[in-house]
Simulated assay, not measured.
Amino acid sequence: MAADYLREREGMAGMDECDVLVVGLGPAGAAAATAAAKAGARVMAVERRQSLGGVANCPEFIPVPLGLHARADHVLIQSIVGARSHHGNGARADSLLPGCVINRDAFDRALIDFSRASGAQVRHDIVFSGLDADHSEATLNQNGRPHIVHYRALVAADGHASAVARLIGLPSLKKMFTRRYRVALHAPQDTVDFWLSRRYPGGYGWLIPAGKDAVLGTGMEEQVAHEALDDLHRQLAGAGLVGDTILSQSAGAVPVGGLREKLAWGNILFAGDAAGLAHPLTGAGIHPAVVSGEAAGKAAAEWASGHLGAIPSYEAKVRGQFSAVLARALRNREPLEMPFSTAYGEPDMEASGWHVVRGAFEQEFRQ
């Protein structure tokens, strides 16, 4: 065993050591790196993308509690006061939804700047390619050169398709696929719109205003997401609400199956989407990502300094804060998944089938 372990190190470019290794630098990872560094830990935070930041030209909504993170330059686009949900039978429901729309790229960059300012070592264009959990060693790869990092605690904040989870043999998370178009908005508005019907199997469509532009999106089954978004765009452009031209587009996925069975495995803590912390009904994940990231970073730093109860406390804290909301959302998601066996384009479900979903949207967005 010892000989095999030593042979695995051959050809490595070198070895670093840190108290806390953070994998992924989205909102959860950046928040974790900042919290761990502020707690006095030696932090290395790595990101696989070639550049740091979120999705360029992709405004996103965040609730009021995260507003303080939108104070950095170029982050805040506009305020939001409410939500409007549209149902398959033509019914419409309005509700309060205080928050703001942010430039996601600038938001993520601001969080990463906080990490650097707090003392975290931040690296990008790094592939997390190997993990020896028994020896607390990770293999990082940059430009084809593998490098070993020894850590005391690891925060996995690398998204729904977490490489950390895969390397320790954890199952994949259930996902909802998203597509987004940025288009011109012909009249200002301070509400976000949601569409709920059989046109969006397993999900919904949305419009988020962003100053003079808007983001149209769908979160649903992958097979028909593109077709449904094109239909929504044509519908709104035909009504004169948005422009015909697609200014930019992006796609992705969010976990919608609730929390992982365990949020910590030994000295490895999962946060954000990697922990399954996106809302199963709405797909919203920035708020729980930042909250869980901060808690994971603090717990990892405490664990690294010898507080063995820190990681179990992290699991209890996150479950205590989010389990009930996510469990309720999973129950309320069931009506969204009913159309999965129905062909795209058939008549909408009766209104009563969507009243539950509408109520869930209104309730959950106020959490």
Results as ranks from 00 to 15, higher is better:
G243H: 09
L269G: 00
V215C: 10
L216P: 00
A324F: 05
K262T: 11
P312L: 07
Q321L: 13
P288D: 08
G285L: 06
Y314L: 13
L229E: 06
G293F: 02
A271C: 05
D273N: 13
K317G: 01
A284G: 15
A210F: 06
P312K: 08
V290F: 05
E294C: 07
D231C: 10
A271E: 09
L277A: 12
A296Y: 05
A210G: 08
G258Q: 10
A239F: 05
A295N: 03
V291Y: 11
G283M: 06
I286W: 04
A225K: 08
A210H: 02
R319V: 07
R319N: 07
L241D: 00
M220T: 15
E222S: 13
L326W: 14
F322N: 03
P288C: 07
W206T: 05
L207H: 03
E222Q: 13
A210R: 05
G285H: 12
S305V: 01
E302D: 13
A253Q: 12
G283A: 09
G211I: 02
T245Y: 06
G266P: 07
A324T: 12
A299F: 08
G219T: 09
G297E: 04
A295T: 08
K212F: 03
A264H: 12
G219M: 08
N267P: 11
D244W: 12
G243F: 07
L232M: 05
P209A: 03
G320L: 09
G272N: 11
A228R: 06
G306M: 11
L277T: 08
L232F: 10
L263P: 04
P209N: 10
L229P: 00
A327Y: 04
A329T: 07
A237T: 08
F270T: 04
Q321A: 14
A271Y: 07
L259N: 02
G217K: 02
V256M: 03
H233P: 00
V291W: 08
A251M: 12
G252F: 06
E261D: 15
G219K: 01
V290T: 11
D273A: 13
A274C: 03
A327F: 01
G258K: 06
D273H: 03
Q321H: 12
G309W: 05
S313T: 14
Q223M: 11
H287A: 14
P312V: 05
G252M: 04
S323D: 13
V224Y: 09
D230V: 12
A210Q: 04
A275T: 04
H226N: 12
S248R: 09
V291I: 15
L281M: 09
L232E: 00
E261S: 14
G266N: 10
A324C: 04
I286D: 07
G266Y: 10
P280Q: 01
S250F: 02
H279D: 15
P280I: 01
G205R: 06
S250C: 14
A284Q: 15
S313R: 14
L263A: 04
K317E: 14
Q235A: 14
L247P: 04
E221F: 09
G211L: 02
E221T: 14
